[in-house]
Computed example of a mutant assay.
Amino acid sequence: MANTTSERHTDILNGYKDGGSRFNDWSREKLGDFTLTDWSWGALNLLWDIDDRFVMPDGVMFGGHIASVADHVAGLTAMTVLSDNKERFRTSRLETNFFRPLMMPLAKIAGRVTNASKTLIHVEADFLNAEDKLAVRINAVQVRRMTG
C-alpha cells in the first residue's frame, strides 16, 4: 500500500483543519469544538476546547462523552492512511483508559496509526489535560471497506 492519503480523504482532513467543513459543524454540535492543528500519514494533533455541556457538576468531563470523542479521533486518525478514494472504515473495537480527570478548558489530543494492514487499521491516541499530563489513552481498531 502506498503511503499517500487519497485525494478525497486529504480534502476532508484539510477541510476539517481549515475549520469550515460539515464535519466541523457536526463535531462542534455533537461533541465539542476541535481544532485539527496538523496531520500527516498516520498521525494527527487536535486541540479540544472543552465546554460545559459535557462536564459533570464537579467539573470533570463525563467519561462516556470522552469515549464518543475517542471514536471520532480514532476515525480521523484512521482516515490519514486511506489511500483509495473509495475506502471507508468502521470501528470494530474501542478501548478507553482513564488515568486522570479531564476538565475544562482544554485537552491536547495526539492520534497515531500503530498498524495499517489490508483490512484493519489500529489507532492509539493520547488525551493530555491542561497541565500536559496524560489523562486518557485510547486504542481502536477500524475495519477497512470499499464502496461502490
Rank of each mutant, 00 (worst) to 15 (best):
H65L: 03
H122D: 12
M103Q: 15
F89E: 01
D18G: 12
D25R: 15
L31R: 00
S83D: 14
R90Y: 11
R93T: 15
E124M: 07
W26M: 12
E95F: 03
T119L: 07
A107T: 01
G75Q: 05
L94P: 04
A130M: 08
K86I: 06
D51I: 00
E29G: 12
W48E: 10
F89K: 06
R93S: 15
D58S: 07
G75V: 01
D126W: 10
W41F: 15
T119N: 14
N115L: 13
E29H: 10
D58Q: 14
A110N: 14
L76G: 09
P57W: 02
I109H: 05
D38M: 13
L36D: 05
T114P: 08
M56T: 14
H65M: 07
R88Y: 07
F23H: 12
V123M: 00
D84G: 02
T35E: 11
V81G: 00
R93C: 04
L82F: 11
R112I: 14
D25V: 12
V73I: 11
M103F: 00
M104N: 04
M61V: 15
A67C: 04
I66F: 07
A107H: 01
G111E: 00
G75T: 10
V69D: 06
R112Y: 10
I66A: 10
N97E: 13
T77M: 01
A107M: 01
F99N: 10
V73H: 06
R28T: 12
G20L: 03
D38S: 15
M79S: 11
N97M: 12
G111F: 01
V60C: 10
W48Q: 04
D71T: 13
D18P: 03
A78W: 07
E95I: 11
G63W: 04
I109E: 08
